[in-house]
Design a protein around this nucleic acid. Structure first.
Ligand code: FES
Ligand code: FES
Lengths: 146, 146
DNA sequence: CAATTTAAGGACTTTTTTATCCTTTATTGT
DNA sequence: ACAATAAAGGATAAAAAAGTCCTTAAATTG
């Protein structure tokens, strides 16, 4: 469903949110440890997310990645399409040239419903809200570190 | 959602079903043309599906791939997990060691519903039933060939 | 300003997925 | 038995995804 890059990206951004709730910036290394992901790969993904304004970054001592008010509106949908593109939400699931209502593929009518469901799930909560749940202990980002 | 191999596989098997409805065996080349997929790759996928008993095959003149009564029970779920494995239905969508109700990842509760939805969609119709819809002209396997 | 810290950037390697090609084996019809 | 046909199998190639490493640039602190 999601690429590895996307899985790491989701966990990393939620972790950044968790830390930013208490005003802390976090470095790539710390993030990688806490979301159980390879550090250099995670750094690459974050680099990209900074360019796409999903998170902010600051170089130098006490720098790191962070989020603030300006990032509050983003949902998983924004994050997923930033990393994996929107192939999950658009195009034919069987690879036909285009998804078409007039000439549907055998999966079309059912896939359409699933896609709406996926879209709904990815937009119903902001990344910040997901971080609050991690903060509460309702959900976790890794099985290694609480 | 589905790998290329799986997309080709789904279309190929439905095409085999369509042809088998009128008693015809079909060769890999014909299949590849009608589902708009690379021929040697499609042949490899079918080879695998024969080993896994999702379709039958016959060598020699007038041979090819076919399905019969013994294949009638198979659904997309069987086909998809034969090709892509069941990563789509099991395991944690964020890559945590295991999907767990007690220590859920941030997506767990929503993903679970989506997964049930996907599973339902993949099991509600048999491959044969999907082929009947193609036969009717309700759905298509390619944009190139009616 | 110098030293240190941390992200950014680019080149590179490895693994997986996608795709092709060629040889062998089984089957059929003559 | 023989030629023709079509799948099976194995080896290889190309492309994409995943992952690493090293150098550069920016910011901070003293
Ligand atoms: S035509 Fe295939 S998903 Fe719409
Ligand atoms: S724990 Fe991640 S999907 Fe269940």
């Amino acid at each position: 469903m999601f690429s590895k890059a996307c899985q790491y990206g989701i966990k990393a951004v939620i972790y950044i949110w968790v830390q930013s709730l208490s005003g802390a910036r976090v470095g790539a290394k710390e993030i990688a440890v806490h979301v159980d992901a390879p550090e250099p790969f995670t750094a690459k993904i974050l680099q990209d997310l900074v360019r796409k304004k999903i998170v902010g970054s600051q170089k130098g001592p006490n720098g790191g990645f962070y989020v603030d008010k300006s990032h509050e509106k983003f949902t998983l949908k924004d994050l997923v399409s930033a990393i994996d593109g929107d192939g999950l939400f658009s195009g034919c699931s069987l690879g036909l040239r285009e998804c078409s209502e007039e000439n549907p593929c055998p999966l079309h009518s059912e896939i359409k419903k699933v896609r709406n469901h996926v879209l709904e799930m990815l937009t119903k909560k902001t990344l910040r809200e997901l971080a609050l749940e991690v903060n509460n202990g309702e959900t976790v980002l890794s099985r290694l570190i609480g």
